[in-house]
């Protein structure tokens, strides 16, 4: 019974009761399978996996480098485009300034001409007006004389006297001079 239990406890443990690691009867077996394992892993890695990963990494590196170069290129183009835009803007602005100045000069010229013409017309009309006023004033003086004579004649007549025109005229003239 006791030996049975002992057997059941483990056959490998018989040879090395302490550590199964030091049971040298299993070493040949383990070493054989280890060598098989290492050879298989080595072949798989060196033939398939590592070249593939290296290729993937290299391709990615290439892509990244290309993309960065392309981005650099595009950035350069953008800078150039901005410069061109600014140049165009400056040109347009100076052109606009020129047009404004020319237009202003034209308008000024027209205005000056119109003003001069208007001034001349005004001057002419003023002179005419003055002449007319002078004439009217002259006329008015004559009329006042006539009215004064008529009035004087009527007054004299109303007071019952008769008066000849010559006396009245002389009197009115003398009075108006006074």
């Amino acid at each position: 019974m006791a030996t049975e239990t002992h057997d059941a406890a483990g056959t490998a443990a018989d040879a090395a009761p302490g550590m199964p690691q030091l049971d040298f009867s299993t070493w040949a077996n383990q070493i054989f399978w280890l060598v098989v394992t290492l050879v298989v892993i080595y072949l798989v890695l060196s033939r398939v996996a590592l070249p593939r990963i290296a290729a993937v990494l290299a391709e990615r590196q290439g892509t990244i480098t290309n993309d960065i170069a392309a981005a650099e290129d595009l950035k350069q183009k953008a800078v150039e485009a901005e410069a061109a835009y600014n140049q165009a803007l400056a040109d347009a602005r100076s052109e606009a300034n020129n047009i404004i100045a020319a237009t202003k000069a034209d308008i000024q010229k027209d205005l000056d001409v119109a003003l001069a013409k208007a001034d001349a017309e005004i001057a002419a009309q003023t002179a005419e007006g003055e002449k007319a006023i002078a004439a009217i004033r002259e006329g008015a003086l004559e009329s006042v004389k006539a009215v004064a004579k008529d009035t004087a004649k009527e007054l004299v007549a109303a007071m019952g006297g008769t008066a000849d025109a010559k006396t009245i005229t002389a009197a009115v003239t003398a009075r108006m001079k006074g």
Partner: peptide, 18 residues
């Protein structure tokens, strides 16, 4: 230490190299 015991998986007590 029992977990470290090397034993044949498919029957038999004998353990050869293979």
């Amino acid at each position: 230490m029992d977990q470290f015991i090397v034993k044949p998986l498919f029957g038999g007590e004998h353990m050869g190299m293979f």
